[in-house]
């Protein structure tokens, strides 16, 4: 079963991390992620820019463009992993490993994927590290 692991946290708190702590957490997450990649269970991974960079199109009789995320929430969607596991328990175990690598506030939503389409971008993109 494919799952999307949606990463939520208070983006202001994440932005307030010291550089050493930020680097430490990223390194810990990379270890967890790499292990999964070696098992062939890791699909696309994305880290999103802060919600201040977001724009929302609200559908209606007349579409409305709004600056910011679709809703003001206490925790924001900061990124996601697409992973392949045999069971929900296994996916939750992975989420637990992520939580240990990145302790404190926040949540990981484990959401089963109904359909995954894989398309290739025409242009090679430099990742924004």
């Amino acid at each position: 079963m494919l799952y999307a692991i949606l990463c939520y946290n208070d983006e202001k708190a994440v932005a307030a991390w010291s550089k050493p702590y930020h680097d430490q957490v990223m390194q810990q997450l990379t270890v967890v992620q790499d292990k999964l990649a070696r098992q062939g269970r890791l699909g696309p991974v994305a880290r999103l820019l802060p919600t201040t960079a977001a724009t929302t199109l609200r559908k209606g009789r007349e579409n409305m463009v709004i600056d910011g995320p679709f809703a003001e929430t206490k925790e924001q969607l900061l990124g996601f992993f697409i992973v392949d596991f045999a069971s929900l328990d296994a996916a939750l175990a992975f989420a637990k490993e992520l939580a240990d690598a990145n302790p404190g506030t926040g949540s990981y939503e484990v959401r089963p994927v109904a359909e995954l389409q894989e398309h290739r971008l025409a242009q090679e993109r430099k990742p924004a590290a």
């Binding site: 208070d10 202001k12 708190a13 994440v14 932005a15 307030a16 991390w17 010291s18 702590y21 430490q24 990145n102 302790p103 404190g104 506030t105």
Partner: peptide, 15 residues
């Protein structure tokens, strides 16, 4: 949870 460094970021951003 044993390493409370994450707390700094929460307190700083809530300030």
């Amino acid at each position: 949870m044993n390493d409370p460094t994450w707390l700094d970021g929460v307190l700083r951003s809530a300030r």
